[in-house]
Computed example of a mutant assay.
Amino acid sequence: MTNSPDQEPFAYPPPPPINTGSAAAPTTPPTEIIGAFWAYLVAAITWLVGGLLVIGQKQQIADALRDANNQGGALTETQIETAANVGVIIVIVVAVVISALYALFAFKLKAGRNWARIVLTVLAALALISLLLGTGGNIVSYIGQFAAIVAAVLSFMPSSSAYIAQVRDSRQYR
């Protein structure tokens, strides 16, 4: 077997061409995905605002702890105030984390990631269950829960599903 001068004796064959037929990356998400994105951001903001509203309820928390303490507890006034402060801080930290995750997942949904759509839908379903059970809340939390439910519906509209499928297909050929 003779080799041409520009061919190496044990060279690997070139890789097969990549089929990029109809799997071009979509340029812009459909209106439904954009709507879902903004609705999920509203839900994220309401989580943050709801967490910050707890600051105004610190005195009510401390009063509830005092009432419980008067029924046989042994906490000092300093311990009650500290417990109320810690409770408020925990609520704020949880609200910030949940808000950040909502926003992150909303951006991933906008980028066409199906896993983000599923996670956000589960969160919206939990919001719906919370609304149906009447677990309480204020107008801010109801706005956020309603926004999450609307966003979940928008993210499963036919054009949204087609966009996510197109993004998935374009990622398979990279």
Rank of each mutant, 00 (worst) to 15 (best):
I61E: 09
E81Y: 01
V150C: 02
P5F: 12
Y102N: 04
A147N: 06
A165T: 14
R174F: 04
A127N: 15
Q71V: 09
Q60G: 00
G21S: 15
L120K: 12
T2G: 07
G136H: 01
V91M: 05
T31K: 09
N85G: 08
Q7E: 15
W47E: 12
V153S: 00
V122T: 10
I118R: 08
A125D: 10
I45G: 11
Y102W: 13
S161F: 01
L101S: 06
Y142W: 15
F107R: 00
T135R: 13
E81V: 11
N138V: 13
V167D: 03
G51L: 07
T28M: 13
P15N: 14
L65K: 04
L101V: 14
A39I: 08
G56Q: 07
A24V: 15
I34Q: 08
T121E: 02
I118K: 06
V93F: 01
N114W: 07
S4E: 13
V167Y: 05
S160L: 12
W115I: 13
V94N: 05
N138C: 10
I18D: 11
Y40M: 02
G112P: 13
L133S: 05
V93L: 01
I98W: 04
S159G: 02
N114E: 13
V94F: 05
A100I: 01
L120N: 10
G35K: 11
L52D: 06
T2C: 03
S141K: 08
V91C: 00
I55T: 08
A68M: 08
S159L: 02
V140C: 06
P14C: 07
A124E: 12
I143K: 08
P26W: 11
S161L: 02
V91Q: 06
L104E: 10
L104V: 14
Q145D: 10
S22L: 04
L48N: 00
G134V: 10
T46Y: 07
L126I: 06
R113N: 14
L53A: 11
I80D: 12
A127I: 08
A74Q: 04
A83Y: 10
V167T: 06
V93E: 00
G51N: 07
S4Y: 12
S99G: 15
L48M: 00
A44M: 04
I33D: 04
G51W: 07
Q7I: 15
F146N: 02
Y173A: 15
W38G: 00
V54L: 05
G134P: 09
L120C: 13
P26L: 12
Y102D: 02
T2W: 03
I98Y: 02
T78V: 08
Q145S: 09
I129Q: 05
T46K: 08
Y40R: 00
A11F: 04
I80K: 12
